[in-house]
């Protein structure tokens, strides 16, 4: 389903859209909260509260970008707020808020990059996924083959498969975003080698 329709349904408080919000964002937001807070349960609670707040206060959003920006920044603020009440030192708070600056609608959002990547990795077949992850951890083909008791050839093939799947789908994601937003500037960039 396209992003614009999704936001309209969130604005209308459709239950299905909120379920989809969980599918799309929950895990990414929890991982994002983990940048601030070590305790995973606390992170999950904070993310829950952010989503419930949207439902209860009938928040509505002008665009998909505005919506994602809100999600990340709300989790960021809730996390910093939690730490403040835990009596974390001023210095550490400063470090955190500088390292993880608020998400800007216009700027590059690395959490969104991860979200798209992780979704694609999730879609890989289990063995293919494992090989790809080990590869990303810097393991050599021979090491991966030994760890998983596979031939080096298999590792190479599966790795290629994973790469191709991710590449193709990232291309598709961008084309889709263009079709929806009609972003001419970016389209121009693509023609120029983006």
């Amino acid at each position: 389903m396209n992003n614009k329709g999704f936001i309209q349904r969130i604005n209308k408080r459709e239950l299905d859209a909120f379920k989809e919000l969980y599918d799309r964002y929950y895990r990414t937001l929890v991982v994002y909260a983990a940048n601030f807070i070590d305790d995973g349960d606390v992170g999950e609670d904070l993310v829950q509260e952010v989503i419930i707040n949207i439902w209860e206060h009938r928040l509505s959003f002008s665009s998909y970008a505005a919506f994602t920006t809100y999600l990340y920044n709300a989790v960021r603020n809730a996390s910093l707020n939690y730490l403040k009440h835990q009596g974390v030192t001023q210095k550490y708070m400063e470090y955190l808020s500088q390292t993880y600056s608020p998400v800007d609608e216009e700027a590059v959002n690395d959490e969104e990059i991860y979200r798209h990547l992780f979704k694609l990795i999730d879609e890989l077949p289990p063995r293919c996924r494992e090989i790809f992850l080990l590869h990303m951890e810097g393991k050599k083909n021979e090491e991966i083959a030994a760890m998983l008791q596979l031939s080096v050839e298999t590792v190479k093939t599966q790795k290629k498969r994973a790469m191709a799947y991710i590449r193709d789908n990232l291309d598709k994601a961008v084309l889709l975003a263009l079709a929806i937003n009609g972003g001419k500037a970016c389209f121009f960039e693509i023609l120029n080698g983006c």
Binding site: E112, L170, A177, G183, C186
Partner: peptide, 19 residues
């Protein structure tokens, strides 16, 4: 997803073409 974000994602997974 923004164009540059997709490009960085490709970079992270070592999937970039020369262009």
């Amino acid at each position: 997803m923004k164009c540059i974000e997709q490009l960085i994602a490709k970079y992270l997974t070592k999937n970039l073409s020369e262009e």
